[in-house]
Design a binder for these strands. Sequence first.
DNA 1: GCAATAGTGTCTATAAGACACTATCCG
DNA 2: CGGATAGTGTCTTATAGACACTATTGC
Lengths: 259, 259
Amino acid sequence: MNLESSKEQIEKENALTESEFIKQYDSSKYEKPSVTVDIMVFTVIKDKLCVLLIKRGRHPFKDAWAIPGGFINMDEDADTAAKRELEEETKVTGVHLEQLYTFSSVHRDPRMRVISISYIAIVPYNKLQYAYGDDASDSRIFEIRRANDDVYILDSLDYNIRLSKSDLAFDHYEILKTAIKRLEGKLDYTDIAIDFLLDKKNFSMNEILWIYKAISGKEYSKPNFARDFKARYQNRLVKTGQEKSNHGKPVNKYSISDK
Amino acid sequence: MNLESSKEQIEKENALTESEFIKQYDSSKYEKPSVTVDIMVFTVIKDKLCVLLIKRGRHPFKDAWAIPGGFINMDEDADTAAKRELEEETKVTGVHLEQLYTFSSVHRDPRMRVISISYIAIVPYNKLQYAYGDDASDSRIFEIRRANDDVYILDSLDYNIRLSKSDLAFDHYEILKTAIKRLEGKLDYTDIAIDFLLDKKNFSMNEILWIYKAISGKEYSKPNFARDFKARYQNRLVKTGQEKSNHGKPVNKYSISDK
DNA sequence: GCAATAGTGTCTATAAGACACTATCCG
DNA sequence: CGGATAGTGTCTTATAGACACTATTGC
């Protein structure tokens, strides 16, 4: 504890019952940081990993792109705040949402001390595409490309717009990089890929392969991928039928059940 | 953002430069939670995973066992606060310290709203054994045992003392369970096991095997473990010699270099 | 038929589990 | 020598990568 208290003070406290103690406790004695949640909304379009960013309309970092988020209310925990902010920003509910990491550099916000609890949301693209506005809107979906350890952020509508670290507000570039590493890491031992599926009850091997490719940045051999995916989800995966494509052999369609 | 501002207010703000804006910004307008760091000090004794807990001497949860921690200062980030608290509590420096998760239930602390950023410290036992006091001290090392999804916490000096969820302060039982899962998960793709070694420049295959066993709770075949460990660390591992034991064949000793 | 796409089967290389066998020490 | 502990070698099974081959459709 960095709250130094005298011996006498502690003894006086301990003479009270716990409920007496809580009544007399004054929590305003010490300066406190502000706490926010930031939610990275990830989606996969075809075989590309994408993230939703919003253009800041006010200081600080006015006109820079930022991860959506906001202050945590005193009557909600961080998960609830993240869920609320996600819905306010995108109207999306009922998706995979997990805490990533808490960023706490002293001067990450120039206004004041702000600690940010960051979250990852996994949103199938069809749930998202009508939620964020058109070209004129202040929110946009960016494509994420990787080379070595670097992360490139491209406007998915206009590849000429490429964001660099300084185009992002606060420490949001670092937060994004951390999130992408986390997604990569969790790909093989969790079900996050499945959470990106447009329709868990009707998808092809290609669709799920593309999602794996989008997250890992790696290429997969189609035959081997199908073999391994089927083996991994043998208890949950059902072939539901076939569907003619406009060229070539019809594709098998699958359904996957919740665990 | 849950900070509602009028259109006029935003326009007034945006007429300012960023530095003018920051000067006039009043961060005390909104109520804020307190933020603490909690540090779980893990160590391995023989083949047992152990954690350091302290007996609370004051309200709330007076006399319950707790994960050491304290409030974050306004001029330090969470990593720095965790490092400081670890040193204040155990005199230990220079060990593996990583952020685990941020716990934020609204009523986790009965005094007030407290958000806790939890950390895992990995401390070789020889660095720890003289730091925490004797039997009479308010800190003690507990052994962690697992059965299925349950976690048992045993006083390593007296197995008759077994802590249950309600013997721990706050939500510290939940935090501990989360930490143990994280350690298990990171065992195979990080070097955390090595961080538990008493001496990275002089250890036996048995010592490192015991650490793996302690963390995973699983049994390992000695021959296969040695084969796989050598394969995994072939670039960093050097056989340094042999050492006679009081019975049986002498043991090979190894040294492992930093990455 | 042929280009295009989907999917099967097979061979190989690597890693993981089981465990018999050998080695060295102490008394 | 026998009990105890350490370490090697080998066989078997499971998993992952490479890729040739077959299947179905539209034009």
